[in-house]
Simulated scan of single mutants.
Amino acid sequence: MNYILVLQWPGRSEVDYDELIAMEDLLLEELPESHGVVDGHDFGSGEMNIFVHTERPVEAFADVMTALSSQPRWTDARAAYRPIEADEFVILWPKTLKHFSVS
Rank of each mutant, 00 (worst) to 15 (best):
L31S: 05
L31M: 06
S34N: 08
H35N: 12
H35A: 07
H35K: 13
H35R: 10
G36N: 02
V37H: 13
V37M: 14
V38S: 04
D39Y: 08
G40K: 05
G40I: 09
G40F: 12
G40S: 08
G40L: 12
H41K: 13
H41C: 00
H41V: 05
D42N: 15
D42P: 00
F43Y: 14
F43A: 06
G44D: 05
S45T: 01
S45M: 15
E47I: 03
E47S: 12
E47V: 07
M48F: 01
M48W: 03
M48K: 03
N49W: 10
I50M: 04
H53T: 12
T54P: 07
T54M: 09
T54Q: 06
T54G: 07
E55N: 14
R56F: 09
V58K: 13
V58S: 07
E59S: 11
E59Y: 02
E59L: 10
E59N: 07
A60W: 00
A60S: 10
A60H: 03
A62H: 07
A62S: 09
D63N: 10
M65P: 00
M65I: 13
T66A: 13
T66N: 14
A67K: 00
L68K: 05
L68A: 06
L68D: 13
S69D: 15
S69H: 09
S70W: 10
P72F: 06
P72M: 05
P72T: 11
R73F: 01
R73D: 07
R73T: 03
R73Q: 13
T75K: 15
D76P: 00
D76R: 14
A77K: 02
R78F: 13
Y81S: 01
Y81L: 02
R82Y: 02
P83S: 14
I84W: 11
I84P: 01
A86E: 14
D87G: 10
D87K: 15
D87M: 10
F89E: 00
F89R: 03
V90S: 06
I91G: 11
